[in-house]
Lab assay of single mutants.
Amino acid sequence: TETYKYDDKREAEKAAEEFRRRGITVTVEERNGTWVLESK
């Protein structure tokens, strides 16, 4: 599991889209005002 942090929800979702395009499952969730993207 890799974790990436973003200040902006849009950025996180854009990154998530890129991962999914490569066939990687990711989750995006907000933690304490930071958007956390996790690849499984």
Rank of each mutant, 00 (worst) to 15 (best):
T1L: 13
T1F: 14
T1K: 11
T1M: 12
T1R: 11
T1Y: 14
T1D: 09
T1I: 12
T1C: 15
T1Q: 10
T1P: 11
T1A: 09
T1N: 11
E2A: 12
E2V: 14
E2K: 13
E2I: 15
E2S: 11
E2L: 14
E2W: 09
E2Q: 13
E2P: 12
E2D: 10
E2H: 14
T3A: 09
T3P: 09
T3K: 11
T3S: 10
T3E: 09
T3R: 12
T3C: 15
T3W: 13
T3G: 10
T3L: 13
Y4E: 05
Y4V: 08
Y4Q: 08
Y4A: 06
Y4W: 13
Y4I: 11
Y4D: 04
Y4R: 10
Y4M: 12
Y4L: 11
K5D: 05
K5L: 14
K5H: 14
K5E: 13
K5Q: 13
K5R: 13
Y6N: 01
Y6A: 01
Y6L: 01
Y6T: 02
Y6V: 01
Y6K: 00
Y6S: 01
Y6R: 00
Y6E: 01
Y6Q: 01
D7A: 14
D7P: 10
D7E: 12
D7Y: 13
D7H: 13
D7I: 10
D7S: 12
D7K: 14
D7V: 11
D8W: 03
D8F: 04
D8V: 06
D8S: 15
D8N: 14
D8G: 05
D8C: 07
K9H: 07
K9L: 11
K9F: 10
K9C: 07
K9W: 10
K9Y: 11
K9P: 09
K9S: 04
K9V: 07
R10S: 11
R10W: 12
R10M: 13
R10F: 12
R10L: 12
R10I: 13
R10A: 14
R10K: 12
R10G: 11
R10P: 05
R10Y: 12
E11P: 01
E11T: 10
E11W: 04
E11Y: 04
E11K: 09
E11L: 10
E11F: 03
E11N: 06
E11M: 09
E11V: 06
E11R: 05
A12F: 01
A12T: 00
A12N: 00
A12D: 00
A12R: 00
A12M: 04
A12C: 12
A12V: 03
A12S: 01
A12W: 01
A12Q: 00
A12Y: 01
A12L: 03
A12E: 00
A12K: 00
E13V: 06
E13H: 06
E13S: 03
E13T: 05
E13A: 05
E13F: 10
E13P: 00
E13L: 11
E13Y: 11
E13G: 03
K14E: 10
K14R: 11
K14L: 11
K14G: 04
K14Q: 10
K14Y: 07
K14A: 12
K14N: 08
K14I: 11
K14S: 08
A15Q: 06
A15P: 00
A15T: 04
A15K: 08
A15F: 04
A15S: 04
A15D: 04
A15I: 05
A15L: 03
A16I: 05
A16W: 03
A16R: 04
A16D: 00
A16K: 05
A16M: 07
A16T: 02
A16F: 04
E17I: 07
E17D: 10
E17R: 07
E17H: 06
E17K: 07
E17Y: 05
E17V: 06
E17A: 09
E17P: 00
E17T: 05
E17W: 05
E17M: 08
E17G: 05
E18V: 06
E18T: 05
E18F: 07
E18A: 10
E18R: 09
E18L: 08
E18P: 01
F19W: 09
F19A: 04
F19P: 00
F19I: 05
F19Y: 08
F19K: 04
F19T: 02
F19G: 02
R20L: 08
R20D: 03
R20S: 08
R20H: 06
R20C: 10
R20G: 06
R20F: 07
R20E: 06
R20P: 00
R20W: 07
R21P: 00
R21N: 09
R21S: 10
R21W: 03
R21E: 08
R21D: 05
R22G: 04
R22V: 06
R22N: 07
R22I: 08
R22H: 10
R22T: 04
R22Y: 05
G23V: 00
G23H: 03
G23K: 02
G23T: 01
G23E: 01
G23Q: 02
G23I: 00
G23W: 02
I24P: 00
I24W: 06
I24H: 08
I24G: 04
I24R: 08
I24D: 03
I24K: 08
I24A: 08
I24S: 04
I24V: 08
T25F: 14
T25L: 13
T25G: 06
T25K: 11
T25Q: 14
T25M: 14
T25C: 15
T25R: 11
T25V: 14
T25E: 14
T25N: 13
T25H: 14
T25W: 14
V26C: 12
V26M: 08
V26R: 01
V26W: 01
V26A: 04
V26Y: 06
V26P: 01
V26F: 07
V26I: 06
V26S: 01
V26D: 00
T27K: 08
T27A: 07
T27Y: 10
T27H: 09
T27D: 05
T27C: 06
T27E: 06
T27N: 07
T27I: 10
T27F: 11
T27R: 08
T27V: 11
V28S: 01
V28F: 04
V28M: 09
V28N: 00
V28C: 06
V28I: 14
V28K: 00
V28L: 12
V28D: 00
V28Y: 03
V28G: 00
E29A: 10
E29S: 12
E29H: 12
E29D: 06
E29W: 09
E29Q: 10
E29V: 15
E29F: 13
E29Y: 14
E30N: 11
E30R: 08
E30Y: 15
E30H: 10
E30D: 08
E30T: 04
E30S: 07
E30L: 12
R31S: 07
R31Q: 09
R31A: 05
R31Y: 10
R31E: 06
R31M: 09
R31D: 06
R31G: 03
R31F: 09
R31I: 13
N32F: 05
N32D: 14
N32E: 11
N32Q: 04
G33K: 02
G33S: 03
G33Q: 02
G33P: 02
G33Y: 02
G33M: 02
G33T: 01
G33E: 03
G33C: 04
T34P: 00
T34Y: 15
T34M: 15
T34I: 15
T34H: 15
T34L: 13
T34W: 15
T34A: 14
W35K: 01
W35G: 01
W35A: 01
W35E: 01
W35S: 02
V36K: 01
V36E: 05
V36I: 12
V36W: 13
V36N: 02
V36L: 06
V36P: 01
V36F: 13
V36T: 06
L37E: 01
L37S: 01
L37I: 14
L37M: 04
L37P: 01
L37Q: 01
L37Y: 01
L37A: 02
L37V: 15
L37G: 01
L37C: 05
E38Y: 11
E38W: 09
E38V: 15
E38H: 09
E38P: 00
E38D: 07
E38R: 07
E38A: 09
E38F: 12
S39V: 15
S39Q: 11
S39I: 15
S39W: 15
S39P: 13
S39M: 15
K40G: 11
K40A: 12
K40D: 10
K40I: 14
K40W: 14
K40C: 15
K40L: 12
K40M: 12
K40P: 11
